[in-house]
Amino acid sequence: MAENKYLGELTKGIIKENPTLVTLLGMCPTLAVTTMAENGLGMGLATTFVLVCSNAAISLLKNVIPKAVRLPSFIVIIASFVTLIEFLMKGYLPALYDSLGLFLSLITVNCIILGRAEAFASKNKLLPSILDGLGMGIGFTLALFLMGSFREILGTGKWMGIDLHISDPMTIFIMPAGGFFVLGCVIAAVNKLANRKPPQQIGCEGCPCAGSCTGCANESKEAEA
């Protein structure tokens, strides 16, 4: 039974609560770095690393951090791991580091990470938190890889750098407009396959700062009333 529960923590992030395609968090990197499948994969793995580490750290420190200053503390913990992965990537994968550029630093403000810290790691033990981070990270990586593959194949006629000999690649797909378009279609396709009603809007339930944010708190009060 216990094993099943742990497995559940891991798999929920991959399919049922996929952060990008279902709860619609972390939209910015999803759109920005997915011009190539390889970049999507790199970004996904970097985010997974930060997610697992920060979930583990926050889960261990949850009783030490005072409630009032928890959000700034979480952000500092996350930012430290982001700096760490920046160094690692600069040292070992300089090409990927250059193509991800600014968005590597912006992992700090990725709502998925702060959201998991707030919603899961600050309430659970070490092992479930690590599994939760890993699952969410894998889900995010898969979504990014899928988006990147679509855009790279349609936009440049290549996949992971392999030429697929498509005669007329549509450059629009690697431009910003194509990013919005592909993401819209992918979300619609996932909804169709899962036979689920599409999310009507990006609401407060998915927002990581829902608890601390006065705007959302007011809105949910209004909804309850």
Partner: peptide, 21 residues
Amino acid sequence: ETFKGVPATLIAASIVSVSFM
């Protein structure tokens, strides 16, 4: 039906983005 909500919003955003190009 499948496109209602967020997917339609994203596709509208893509068209606005084209205009900014």
